[in-house]
Amino acid sequence: MNYDFNFDVIWRNWELLAQGLGLGLFLAIVSIAIGCLIGLLAAFGMLSRHKILRWIAGGYVSAIRNTPILVLILFCYFALPQLGIALDKISSFIFTLSIYAGAYLAEVFRSGLVALPKGLREAGLAIGLTEFKIKTNIIIPVMFRNVLPSLSNNFISLFKDTSLAAAIAVPDLTFYARKINVESFRVIETWMVASMIYVVACYVIAWLLRRLEQRLAVPR
């Protein structure tokens, strides 16, 4: 192999890569926040007494989980406008990633809810709380702490999935890497650096989330 490594073009464009990374993080954070809300609603829906709610929530979860995310992204960006729902690139991607995250988090939350001892609810009832107050003050906070490790994993997956935003020309890290690659032909350097940035970013995120888990953990 005879290849002269030259990283100059990468260093010259570091600002673009940093911007792309920043946007990716932003997309992941907004999407997991919205995804948590959707996931909570869907989880309670799947456990509802009402058949219709169970049916809607279950249908949503399995439809989304059984569709490749790239197809979802393309569908939301290209097909929804035909149906009258036109969003700009970034909003469309956040929308897609949120409903995608929501479906996976719904399963996480559902198993978290099922695993809670039923005595917690009864203890809440016994001090005169309504079902709604029991959910907001006891059930959700306890469940949330218990599922935090799975939530962290989901967030990291989601951050990596933001690379698919490049498919609809959202200017994330992968988008800029491709741009630099096309303009400079430094193929190996470009994709090596892009990969490294993802690896380091994921590593740092994982470390931060672990610290958060430790802080929020229920003391034993």
Binding site: P117, L120, A123, I138, V142, R145
Partner: peptide
């Protein structure tokens, strides 16, 4: 109007 103590205590762990 009633107070209840349970076999399994059921304290809120968080």
């Amino acid at each position: 109007m009633t107070g209840m103590a349970f076999q399994q205590f059921n304290l809120f762990p968080h």
